[in-house]
Amino acid sequence: MKPEFKVISTLIKKESHVLDIGCSDGILMEYLKNEKKVNIRGIEISKSKVQNCIAKGLTVIEGNAENDLKQFPDNSFDYVVLSQTLQAFLNPENVIKELLRIGKQAIVTIPNFGYWKIRLHLLLKGTMPVTRTLPDEWYNTPNIHLCTIKDFVFFSKKKKFKLSKSLAMRSNKVSYINNVNLNMKNLSTNLGIFLIEK
């Protein structure tokens, strides 16, 4: 289980209605079902992963968040979760809009491209960084819209959505991000977790 799942769980109220976008093998779904007794659905693009979810008794739709969120009415979920996939979309701006349309709140986590190890990799080696959270080479990475924690915070201001909670994570350590420590968190942590709303 990804360490961030525990953090995501703390952001979610009991017995709420949740959509997990890109739910993979349904590990977060199962965890939230057990921990928070949520009513949870998933969308997943890979057929074999959808099969794995069905085998666990989870309700999952094979589909692509870029096209298949349209079918959900406004505010149909209390939370929409997007764990480390925003950077893989063709149009992340549109995806965020859709998340905030169908969810009262959304939880978005992003691999932080501003993390010092990534910066150092590019600075010293001069090649595209390959790390544990971003393990692909430049030519085969699905991550076409990478950003930093700072980018995401600026993005929220520009697009006028609210960051209700901003958390940074490294290893298993979680801390709050605020205006004062933004530059520091952007350098010292490799994952941003945001609870956002309109």
Binding site: R41, K47, V50, Q51, I54, L58, T59, V60, I61, E62, G63, Q71, F72, P73, S76
Partner: peptide, 18 residues
Amino acid sequence: IVIALNAIGIDVGFVEIE
């Protein structure tokens, strides 16, 4: 059909089999 069911919040799973 999946879309129509989702539109009213019905519990629906879907998979296209290869």
